[in-house]
Design a binder for these strands. Structure first.
Length: 198
DNA sequence: ACGGAGATCTTCT
DNA sequence: GAAGATCTCCGTT
């Protein structure tokens, strides 16, 4: 078992977004492991990507995206949902990969409780960026967290997913972005996986 | 199955 | 003051 280190994230964001597919996101809380295989990601790339928060410049919130690779960028949207990103590339170049969905592996019972017992079926547990944050108890206290420490939150390398198994398409929920940015096929998923978001 | 609306609050103008 | 990298519930087919 290998904990993925910052150098893994210090490369092109599109490569990282693909390479993260199939790897295991681990959350340790109260001595218990909650984990899932990453099955869907999105890339937010550079200062000119109008879908990215960083396109409006460096602010207290977006400063993390301009920082070193291998840190988390966790923020709140719609006043109630947290989103988990991992910062990529290099310092002063704002980029990150949004984790959009995982396939639950460990701690399913705890995830159900964390999700307020709502999902009747396992498929609804972590098949969306806000859902997985709720299931894995990821909130703002984990913002700017060094993901290489093997504490609280990290990613374990499992296996590379073959190119032929990876789907790509436009990112979701970015109507505010410029048309050309909306059209970029920067959402990636494992083809046929039933935990990919709707 | 599908569509629309409301929830809810931080962030930046 | 407005909008948001979403989700759930409730209505109608």
């Amino acid at each position: 078992m290998t904990i993925i280190q910052p150098d893994f994230f210090a490369q092109s964001t599109l490569s990282v977004a693909r390479a993260l597919l199939g790897q295991r996101l681990v959350r340790e809380i109260d001595g218990q492991r909650l984990s899932g295989l990453i099955v869907e990601t999105e890339a937010y790339v550079g200062p000119h990507d109008t879908a990215s928060h960083a396109s409006r410049g460096r602010t207290p919130r977006t400063g993390v995206m301009f920082g070193p690779p291998g840190r988390t960028y966790v923020y709140l949207v719609y006043g109630m949902h947290f989103m988990l990103n991992i910062v990529t590339e290099a310092e002063d170049f704002p980029a990150a990969v949004l984790i959009r969905a995982v396939e639950p592996v460990e701690g399913l019972d705890a995830m159900r409780v964390n999700r307020r017992g709502h999902p009747a079926n396992i498929q609804n547990l972590t098949n969306g960026p806000a859902k997985l944050c709720q299931a894995l108890v990821i909130d703002k206290t984990l913002n700017n967290w060094d993901i290489s420490l093997g504490q609280k939150l990290w990613v374990e390398f499992v296996n590379s997913v073959a190119e032929a198994e990876i789907g790509a398409g436009p990112r979701r929920g970015i109507d505010y972005a410029q048309p050309q940015d909306q059209a970029m096929p920067w959402r990636f998923w494992i083809k046929g996986n039933r935990f990919v978001s709707k």
